[in-house]
Amino acid sequence: MADRRIALLIRRHGGRAEALIEVLHQVQEIHGYLPTSALLAVARGLQLPLSRVYGVASFYHLFRLQAPSEHRCAVCLGTACFVRHAGVLAKQLEQRLGLVMDAAGADGIWALEQISCIGACGQAPVLVVDGALETKLPVDDQEALAARFDAMGLPSARGQVR
């Protein structure tokens, strides 16, 4: 099924090897990530060596080679956010979620990742929680911050030993 969709979108790109990145974007839209079977189909369809396709897919940070966790919280660690204490924010999130930055979570439900400037510098520091932008987080005010986290639906893993 998925293979047919991949074949279709490859045809739409005229089967040109230079369309590899565009094709991978669209495959990721279909599956949410790039499973091995899809990479194989793409390589066949574009008549590219397998390692070339994997090399490209793993080079670009926006391509995911693993199924994404159910929920994701991304902290901007761009310079403007950094100056407004995004580093502290990241630490607090690690604590609260009981997760390590950019490492797959044990339960697979939440993942914490860092991103670099999303252009909301004027509202720094910012988070993206499941696609929704959260701005001007009150890093200096523990209570207010916790309340914001609660409102975003971030679970609290405090007390849990890992």
Binding site: I21, E22, H25, F59, Y60, H61, L62, F63
Partner: peptide, 8 residues
Amino acid sequence: VRVGAGAY
């Protein structure tokens, strides 16, 4: 138009 994929 060509779109990148996250590589500075």
